[in-house]
Simulated assay, not measured.
Amino acid sequence: MAERNFFEALAAEYGRSFSGWDFSYVNERMVSDPLPWNYRLVVTDAVSASGSLLDMGTGGGEFLDSLPALPPVTFATEGYAPNVPIAKARLREKNVQVVEIAADDVLPFDDRSFDLAINRHESFAAEEVARVLRPSGRFITQQVGGMNGLDINASLGAPPPGHVGWCLLEAKENLLYAGFKITTCREYIGKTRFYYIYSLVYFLKCIPWQIADFSIDAYFRRRCLLNKEIQARGYRDFILHRFLLVAEK
């Protein structure tokens, strides 16, 4: 009976709605180490000196909407169809045009369209970013590294994610090959702490690329064991992997 109740509680958590790129529901139950840089500050400083901006992978437009001011020409792309109307509604009053895309290696913009491209946790093709940037244009990206949450997969007995090799050096090499000059490159490995197994289930539902076949049934026995460990210790830490790159065309 206890196992059945646990399964039903997991199912209820898994079934909670998620839209845009808003993790506020688990903010107090899932805590990540602060990064040694401030992406928002880096972007805000760059935006103030730019006349045109591209936000790649805007999600529901949450980050772009939070910036104090935007250039007169601002576009955003989003590849996840359910997020597109959310972003359009949120950013409409700021005159941001949100464009749905099918892949990051084809950006639907003319050559030399933007002074600045920003990218938070979205994949990118360095050559395509270079194409849409003007001479001396800048690219700012904060990426989720391939080691991020790797021990989540191991703990549950799941295969590693497909992006496991993604790291600062590979991203830097891609940008250099595309003709960029790297002005900032930083990498950080810390931890994300989960206080409840339910928060981990919700989190994995929201980022399906971490465990491609994740479901309530899949890996249930391992989740039972992990839940006992979290209850005994009060939390469980997993790897946090981020890196920051600022590049100039």
Rank of each mutant, 00 (worst) to 15 (best):
R134P: 00
E128A: 11
I118W: 02
R134H: 01
D45P: 03
P82E: 10
L91T: 06
P34F: 06
V99K: 02
V73I: 07
V98Y: 03
P71A: 05
A103S: 15
A126G: 05
A126P: 07
R134T: 08
L67R: 00
L156D: 09
P108C: 04
I152A: 06
V42H: 07
D33S: 15
V106Y: 07
A126L: 02
Q97W: 01
G157F: 08
S50T: 13
E128K: 10
V96M: 12
V42T: 10
G146E: 07
D65N: 12
G137S: 12
R90F: 00
R120H: 00
D45E: 15
M56R: 11
P72M: 11
D33V: 14
A81C: 03
Q142E: 15
S155D: 14
V43R: 00
R40G: 14
E127I: 09
I152N: 01
V43M: 09
F124N: 10
P68V: 05
L156K: 08
P159S: 12
N83T: 04
T44L: 04
I118L: 02
N83V: 10
V47N: 10
L91I: 12
P71C: 05
G157W: 01
P160K: 07
F75R: 13
S50K: 14
A102E: 15
F124C: 08
L64D: 05
G59F: 00
S52M: 05
S32Y: 04
I86N: 01
G162V: 11
K88N: 06
I101V: 05
H121V: 11
